[in-house]
Simulated assay, not measured.
Amino acid sequence: MSVDYRKITLDGLWHNNPALVQLLGLCPLLAVTASVVNALGLGLASTIVLVCSNLTVSIFRKLVPETVRLPIFVMIIASFVTAIELLMQAFTYELYLILGIFIPLIVTNCAIMGRADAFAVKNPVRASVVDGLMMGIGFSVVLVLLGGMRELLGTGALFANMHLLFGEAARSWQLVIFDDYRGFLFAILPPGAFVGLGLMIALKNVIDARLEEKRKASAPKPEDAPPSKRVRVTG
């Protein structure tokens, strides 16, 4: 069975993006995206779990009985989430405290369970890994864009506290875009997350609609086809 890796990539990044199209994993997405570092931390953790769970499910897909498939998937995902949680406690403890309950809640992220059940259990290892990676990157990009938008509007700066994820060398990464900025509290509160995500979904729909219009406009019309390829209808 041939695998279309281009389709897998485009689905994960755009056409079937977990956050913008499937609307999965919205609880952590809306809760932790008040800043770029929070969004990036959760995005990396979710991507690693997606890749590892897809890989494991694909390897053992022929050995898992149908009757206990979902409980086994949950156990696999929970194992990787626990490993990520312990690694964050060891190396990025302050960020782990900020993200709080949303790291363990990756276990219940429907995007991860959905990819395991809809794709990894039916496809070979390589395709499953690529699918998990692309879905994770697509989810992470939305997280980071939303986090950047909310952080910029809320504080007038970007990339604050990046040392929580990348170490002391990243303290100087903060960019102050607006000096003497009073702040826009709404942007970093939960309602701001809903509005920001809604705007991103609306923008994607507008782009998709324009691309579809261009595709239809550039498609060859029946009257433009050579005479030999035209279909003649006789009554």
Results as ranks from 00 to 15, higher is better:
1 M>K: 06
3 V>D: 10
3 V>H: 06
4 D>S: 07
4 D>V: 06
5 Y>M: 13
8 I>N: 13
9 T>L: 09
17 N>G: 11
20 L>P: 12
23 L>Y: 14
26 L>C: 07
26 L>P: 15
27 C>I: 15
29 L>K: 00
31 A>G: 05
31 A>P: 05
32 V>Y: 04
33 T>A: 09
35 S>A: 14
35 S>D: 10
36 V>F: 02
40 L>P: 06
42 L>I: 14
45 A>V: 06
48 I>Q: 00
50 L>Y: 02
54 N>D: 12
54 N>H: 03
54 N>W: 03
55 L>S: 03
56 T>C: 07
60 F>N: 04
61 R>T: 09
62 K>R: 07
62 K>V: 11
63 L>V: 04
64 V>D: 12
66 E>T: 11
67 T>W: 09
69 R>W: 03
70 L>A: 15
70 L>V: 15
72 I>G: 04
73 F>V: 12
77 I>G: 06
78 A>N: 06
80 F>G: 13
83 A>T: 00
86 L>P: 10
87 L>C: 12
87 L>W: 10
88 M>I: 00
92 T>N: 08
93 Y>H: 06
93 Y>F: 13
93 Y>E: 11
96 Y>M: 03
101 I>S: 05
102 F>W: 08
102 F>E: 08
104 P>V: 01
106 I>M: 02
109 N>T: 08
112 I>F: 04
112 I>H: 08
112 I>D: 13
113 M>D: 11
113 M>K: 01
114 G>S: 06
115 R>I: 08
115 R>H: 00
120 A>L: 06
122 K>S: 07
122 K>V: 05
123 N>I: 05
123 N>G: 12
126 R>H: 04
130 V>K: 03
132 G>K: 02
132 G>Y: 00
133 L>Q: 02
134 M>T: 15
135 M>C: 02
135 M>V: 07
135 M>W: 02
136 G>F: 05
138 G>H: 11
139 F>T: 15
140 S>F: 07
141 V>R: 03
144 V>Q: 04
145 L>A: 11
147 G>T: 05
150 R>H: 07
150 R>Q: 13
158 L>Y: 01
159 F>M: 08
164 L>V: 13
166 F>Y: 12
166 F>I: 08
167 G>Q: 09
168 E>V: 01
168 E>K: 01
169 A>P: 00
170 A>S: 14
171 R>Y: 03
174 Q>C: 08
176 V>R: 02
178 F>E: 08
183 G>T: 13
189 L>Q: 10
191 P>H: 14
192 G>V: 15
193 A>R: 08
194 F>R: 06
195 V>A: 12
196 G>H: 07
201 I>E: 08
201 I>M: 13
202 A>L: 05
203 L>A: 15
203 L>G: 12
204 K>H: 12
206 V>L: 13
207 I>Y: 04
207 I>V: 15
207 I>T: 11
213 E>T: 11
215 R>Q: 07
215 R>G: 05
215 R>P: 01
218 S>I: 01
218 S>W: 05
220 P>V: 07
221 K>F: 02
221 K>W: 00
222 P>W: 03
225 A>E: 15
227 P>C: 00
228 S>C: 01
228 S>H: 09
229 K>I: 01
232 R>S: 10
233 V>P: 10
234 T>V: 10
